[in-house]
């Protein structure tokens, strides 16, 4: 059996892990299911790819992508916090709007990065193979992001963010502008998602306007898979669980493809994973009742 496929899936898991950490921040910490990510991952890819095409240094292009993503998150946050639009609808509005914006940024539905420089080539120049430099770079970025998130979530502001997702009424009575907290959290999250998109585009060699479809569900599936395996006892464990979930999710997808399923079947497969995870508590209760 050819293992290269799984190597690739592993690296994808690390890069998509940045997106999953972003989804974790909104879905788990803020208790805000944010659909913006379907648009902001593509936005990150589109911004980075189009900047690289115009000759901008890939590192600069990759660092500018999260700013665009944060802006998208900011819009969703303002729609929700200032104008009381429900979370799902606010996310959908941003996501749909971003589809047009992404097409504008890309200039066409699919923008290939053939023979363009990418961030992964920097290390490759230093004597590593392209594959190992992809691995080193994506692992390093994921690790740094986890450490930064861990530090942030334990700062005064980070604690206030966590408490906003837990008990908003309490936080307002403690003097926190919870609307602003949510806006900040959404901006941060979508910044991470866009960074993931920028790195994915360079990894796969193109940015595509439809590459973001289903991202939120893949993100949720990854979060849930990780939590099942490592638990969520402490924040550090939880963050690593989420990254591990992302890697496993991509490996499972690779396996499913190996088994002969079509790539177009994957969305159904992902939706099934999330559905099973979400309904399993009901079956647990049911089984308890049956036994009793």
């Amino acid at each position: 059996m050819n293992l290269t496929v799984f190597e690739g899936a592993f690296i994808q898991g690390l890069i998509y892990g940045l997106m999953v950490l972003g989804v974790f921040l909104t879905f788990r910490i803020l208790d805000f299911p944010d659909l913006t990510v379907d648009g902001s991952i593509t936005l990150g890819a589109a911004v980075a790819a189009s900047l690289i095409i115009t000759g901008i240094d890939p590192v600069v292009a990759t660092l500018l992508a999260p700013l665009a993503g944060a802006l998208a998150g900011l819009v969703t946050g303002v729609l929700h916090a200032k104008f009381a639009i429900p979370p799902l609808l606010a996310g959908i509005l941003s996501m749909i709007g971003l589809y047009s914006i992404n097409l504008r940024v890309l200039g066409r539905p699919n923008l290939p990065l053939l023979r363009q420089p990418t961030i992964y080539e920097y290390l490759a120049g230093a004597g590593f193979t392209l594959r190992s430099s992809e691995f080193i770079l994506s692992a390093a970025v994921a690790l740094i992001l986890i450490l930064l998130l861990y530090y942030f979530l334990n700062t005064e502001t980070g604690q206030a963010l966590r408490a906003t997702g837990d008990n908003e009424i309490m936080m307002r009575s403690l003097g926190v502008n919870t609307g602003r907290m949510k806006i900040m959290g959404l901006a941060l999250s979508n910044g991470m998602v866009a960074l993931s998109g920028a790195m994915i585009a360079q990894y796969q060699g193109f940015a595509d306007v439809s590459m973001g479809i289903g991202t939120i569900v893949a993100g949720l599936a990854s979060v849930i898979v990780g939590e099942v395996l490592l638990g969520r006892s402490r924040i550090m464990v939880w963050l690593f669980a989420v990254l591990l979930g992302s890697i496993l999710y991509r490996l499972i997808i690779a396996l499913v493809l190996k088994l002969g399923f079509q790539p177009t079947d994957l969305k159904l497969f992902t939706a099934a994973i999330v559905t099973i995870a979400l309904i399993s508590p009901f079956f647990k209760d049911y089984l308890k009742k049956v036994k009793a």
Binding site: Q159, A160, R162
Partner: peptide
Amino acid sequence: AGSMTVEENMALALKRGQKRGL
């Protein structure tokens, strides 16, 4: 906040009405 620890809750209250930093 139920998901946060006793000391974390107290830390939140210690900053009531004040700016929260990094």
